[in-house]
Computed example of a mutant assay.
Amino acid sequence: MKYTYLGRSGLRVSKLCLGTMNFGVDTEEKEAFRIMDEALDSGINFFDTANIYGWGDNAGRTEEIIGKWFQQGDGKRERTVLATKMYGDMHDDNDGPNGSPGLSAYKIRRHLEGSLKRLQTDHIELYQMHHVDRNVNWSELWRAFETAQLQGKIGYVGSSNFAGWDIAVAQGEAKARGMLGLVSEQHKYNLLCRLPELEVLPASQALGLGVIPWSPLDGGLLAGNHRRKSEGGRRSSDEKRLEKHRKQLEEYAKFCDELGEPEDLVSLAWLLANPAVTAPIIGARTLDQFKRSLKALDVELDESAMKRIDEIFPGPGGDAPRAYSW
């Protein structure tokens, strides 16, 4: 297994991150246990979740499954670098008006305690803001995060779905308080979504954040879905996106055939080759899907392959400074 540092922190994590969004939804508990067992056995130590996973009235279910798995012992908790997120509505009547989506010192304290209870642990390595809340003062947030760190309940703080300038403001405020600040940004980034290359990736690199891409296969579009016939259960929005990108995807499929590698593994390998990326999130629903994704670590893309991929899926205009030059 390949490992890297989580941003400018001293924490080492695997180059692939196990995403648990499907646990308790599309993936039943026993299968989730098998996937997590296989992850640790394969050397993947970085697990990502969120307090709202399970969704709606079932919010928290995914964290509960992970907590039950930790309780099996055998060093499972000790060997796991655990990341979770907060921001959303946990559908807890006791939250009252403070349960609505957003950030606050109240939510950091109360929702952190809820996650710790469900996860059956006393600490979380990486505590992430699931979205930005520009109505809240950073002094309030950093004070709350600092308190949680001093109590030993969280190790590091990360962001998710932040714009480049949100990252810059957060880091400036943290520096003024003498804090490390953010160590990671979780962002949608893949071959069909390269806009983060303009600001989010350069800002993250310059300010010491590791990038954790979510939806690395863009809902399956980069995994060969266009080769399959339309399925009755597929959403119309998925069909529209597939048709919009069909020409690119067919060209990409042909290129991957020439490489002798499947599209999904090439898509992951392309992300792994980016020095700004810490670890793409693998959101496998089954053990077989998870095992397949591990093979991406063995796919090497040379300069000519990377150039060809850029031709098929052009970036947003090159490096940010040049893109903004006239």
Rank of each mutant, 00 (worst) to 15 (best):
L209Q: 14
A32V: 12
R177T: 05
F162N: 07
L287P: 05
K85H: 03
A50C: 10
Q205I: 12
Q186T: 02
E78G: 00
P280C: 06
L103K: 00
D37Q: 04
L119V: 10
G172V: 05
V136L: 08
E199Y: 13
L222M: 01
G260F: 06
W55H: 10
A206W: 01
K188F: 03
G208K: 01
A323I: 02
L272Y: 02
T27M: 09
K291M: 06
R194V: 08
F255E: 01
L192E: 07
G220Q: 12
R110V: 15
I65S: 08
D122G: 07
A323D: 08
V277Q: 04
V157W: 00
A170P: 04
E303P: 03
S42Q: 11
E185M: 11
A223C: 05
I124W: 04
G102D: 08
G224N: 03
F46I: 14
Q71G: 00
L180Y: 07
E146N: 15
M179W: 11
I282W: 00
K307H: 11
A284R: 07
Y3P: 03
N51Q: 10
M1Y: 00
R118F: 09
D257M: 12
C193E: 14
L191R: 04
D298W: 00
H187P: 02
L6Q: 02
V277C: 11
S9V: 06
L301Y: 08
D310W: 00
Y324G: 03
H111T: 03
G317E: 08
T84A: 14
E125K: 06
A269G: 13
A296M: 05
L82G: 11
L112H: 07
K85W: 02
A174D: 10
S267A: 14
L116N: 09
W214H: 12
Q289E: 13
E31S: 12
G7R: 07
E251F: 08
G318L: 11
A223H: 05
G67S: 04
M129Q: 14
E300I: 09
G19V: 07
T27E: 05
V277F: 03
K229W: 00
H123S: 14
I65K: 01
D302W: 02
L221H: 09
S293L: 01
E28P: 03
N161E: 11
K68A: 07
R235E: 14
W142C: 05
S325R: 15
R308C: 12
E38M: 13
G318I: 10
I66C: 03
A305W: 10
S159K: 07
V136S: 07
S293E: 09
S100K: 13
W55A: 12
G232K: 15
M179N: 13
C17Q: 07
L119I: 08
M306P: 05
G43I: 01
Y189H: 08
G19K: 10
A206H: 03
C17G: 09
A253N: 06
